[in-house]
Design a protein around this nucleic acid. Structure first.
Lengths: 144, 144
DNA sequence: TTTTCATGTAACTTCAATTATTACGAATCG
DNA sequence: CGATTCGTAATAATTGAAGTTACATGAAAA
């Protein structure tokens, strides 16, 4: 399976947008994210529908952040993107009649559920402001 | 991407094999696992190479468990299958020059690493014997 | 020894999901 | 008006697991 990198992509885009006050066009974002403008529009559209960013057409149009960086968490972004599947591993059948397979599913489901809960909890405690701060720190380090 | 269900499949196969002392053929396993005999051979081949099962050709041939159920953990099986990717979500670029993307990757990598460590730890504490016991319990419950 | 059964494997196709691309419509501003 | 930019439909490319076909290899039964 190809990995879903939309969360990574929108974070990258949002932080670049946070660095600039003017709107960034899909083409500009696509260039720095090494992807396609249409992919940018498609993905950022979810965030616009959730009120995290705004989009404007025409001259001087593009994408801008409307939400407060401190209030947007990775978990919220993950939900906004439609809560894509986290795991690349899963059960062969979800609702098997076979008791053996039920026992297997139960064991795997428990482990996956715990790992997912931990991941989402970590996501819930990281905001865009945290990432922006970490970027600023890296920037200072490199500028020395 | 299609989810990798090989761990689920081999667990199902192993528990069925544990229930019977005679070897099970690839065709028999494929039937109860709703898959293809060639897929069974391909996947079980990893376990044979790791000494967990044996395979025999010809009459009365097939697959049998050689390892002690108490010593085989889900983690070991996952490793035996080549440690397939656990997550369906990932970074857009693994080694970006862009400092923004480095900050994004660092945050995501930390969260994924913690979730993976938890999952593998859970896997390490579940043995085939545990699953067999859980199956027996389910069997007793349904027989009542 | 011949037949039958079963694994071992290569080669190819199918499948599922993201990502990429092309094309064009719609809105906005100079 | 006309250039710019988003909105979106339709389609292809990509990636890795899973499924399928075909045939060789080896072992036990007849």
């Amino acid at each position: 399976m190809k990995k879903d990198s939309r969360l990574s992509s929108v974070l990258h885009a949002l932080l670049h947008m946070a660095e600039r006050d003017e709107p960034l066009t899909s083409d500009e974002l696509a260039l720095c994210m090494r992807t396609n403008p249409v992919v940018v529009r498609r993905t950022m559209g979810f965030l616009r529908d959730a009120g995290i960013v705004s989009s404007a057409r025409g001259h001087a149009g593009g994408w801008a952040i409307t939400a407060d960086l401190k209030t947007v968490t990775l978990r919220q972004l993950h939900e906004t993107l439609g809560e894509p599947a986290i795991f690349a591993i899963g059960n062969k059948q979800e609702m098997p009649e076979c008791l053996v397979e039920q026992a297997v599913n139960a064991a795997l489901d428990t482990a996956f559920a715990e790992a997912e809960a931990l991941l989402l909890d970590r996501f819930a405690h990281v905001t865009l402001a945290d990432l922006a701060e970490d970027f600023a720190r890296r920037h200072r380090l490199r500028s020395q």
